[in-house]
Structures are given as C-alpha cells and as structure tokens.
C-alpha cells in the first residue's frame, strides 16, 4: 500500500533522511522505532508532504506522491497525527473534528463519522462543545487521532501517541488504535519511542538510526532480537 525507496530529505542543509526504504502492507500496523533524531518524525513528514524528499520515491497505492501537496495527500487517503498533537486549541472539539473532514463533501456521512469517533472516545462526545485547550493531554491525543480519522484515511500516520501520557492512558489509547485498525481495515504507520509498547501491537517493525533503516523484521522477531532488546526494550 505504501512504499518508500531510498528517500532522502533535509531541513535546509541538515540531512534528516539518508535513504529510507520501507513498506506498509494493507491492513498492517507497521512500527518505526529509533532514538531521538533518528529520522522517525521526518519519515512521517515526508510521507504526508510536509517535508519534500530530495531524492528517492514515495508511492501510495501505486502512485508517486513525492511532489504532491499535503492537501492532496490527505484527499488520497493518508492522515497524519503529528508529534505534539497539533490540535486547534482555540477551537472546540467539534470544530476540530469537522476540520478533520475538511476534504470531504458528504455531509451526512460526516455526521455519522463524528458519532463513530465519539463511540471510540466517549469523553470527546461529552466535551464536544468545549475549547480544545481545556482538554487533558490524553484527551487531546484522542482528539488528534479522532480528527485524523475524520478524513476517512486508508493509511494513518501516528507520531508518538504515548508522549507525555500516563501509562494507563497509553495502554487505553493503544487498545483503541488496535481496535480501529481491525474494525476498519486501516493501515497504520506508528512512530514510537516506547519500543515494547509499539511492538506489542505491530505486525512489522523498522529500526532507524541517523536517517537510515538498520533493521527490518516482523514484530515478533524484533522482540527477540538481542541488540533491539538491549538498546530499545531495556531488558
């Protein structure tokens, strides 16, 4: 469904990606692991069009999206839940969700999709009319995911959904992510610092170091891999 081949990208003169290649097959949860600065977020930014690759190809459902604008990419079916959530804090929860469906024109379906998001995250339904700034960190993360789902994506890019959240909340959110993936057949590319958590729900994993893929295997194999265990799983 998604494939990156030898993708390079830079911020000004600082090279962030030095030849990333990865695949995300339909219906899978693929996890991207690595330390800070390894290029995990940049990979997602390159896919969603925020960062333009200088070299290599990014294909989504067989079409190259290297030079496609972020707006078009959303329309094609890729939603990005960015690092730090980036919700619209001055708008209400409802307005955030409606913006998530900005590229869609099917009014009635949007309404029922909002209800579906509320069924995944009931607390958002309770706070629909509140300003998003008033939500807790976990609720903001739920809103960010909910907003991304509103675009009816076939591929969801999730950047560090666990960041700054209590472990219990993290487990709850990951449970919901897994459910959504299964129910809707959604493909998910998950960037996560917490490797054990990520590998617990992923089918496949990529390990990034300084902008390149250094290891690539099934989640199960990675969990058993000695060096992964020592460096990223911590036991």
């Amino acid at each position: 469904m998604l494939s990156l081949r030898n993708v390079h990208a830079a911020y000004g003169s600082v090279l962030a990606l030095r030849g990333i290649s990865l695949e995300a097959p339909e219906g899978n949860i693929v996890s991207v692991l690595g330390a800070n600065g390894a290029g995990k977020s940049s990979t997602l930014r390159a896919i969603s069009g925020l960062l333009r690759p200088s070299q290599g190809t990014i294909e989504f459902e067989g079409k190259s999206i290297n030079r496609t604008s972020p707006e078009k990419i959303v329309q094609m079916g890729i939603s990005h839940v960015p690092e730090g959530r980036q919700i619209f804090t001055e708008l209400t929860v409802m307005e955030n969700l409606r913006l998530g469906a900005y590229t869609r024109r099917d009014g009635d379906a949007i309404k029922s999709d909002i209800d579906r998001v509320f069924s995944y995250f009931p607390v958002l339904g309770e706070r629909a009319k509140q300003q998003a700034a008033l939500l807790s960190g976990g609720e903001q993360q739920m809103l960010a995911i909910g907003r991304a789902l509103m675009a009816k994506p076939r591929l969801l890019l999730l950047d560090e959904p666990s960041l700054g959240l209590a472990p219990m909340l993290v487990r709850e959110i990951f449970g919901i992510i897994k459910t959504i993936s299964e129910e809707q057949g959604l493909t998910i590319l998950l960037v996560e610092q917490d490797a054990s958590l990520a590998l617990s729900i992923a089918n496949h994993g990529y390990l990034l170091e300084t902008g390149t893929v250094v290891l690539d295997d099934t989640a199960e194999q990675l969990r058993g891999n000695e060096s992964v265990r020592r460096s990223y799983l911590g036991y």
Partner: peptide, 9 residues
C-alpha cells in the same frame, strides 16, 4: 511556534 515545533525530530 507550532510550525517550528513540528520541524524538530
């Protein structure tokens, strides 16, 4: 601010 924070890895 929002733009910048997004650029960091």
């Amino acid at each position: 601010d929002a733009d910048d924070s997004g650029k960091k890895e």
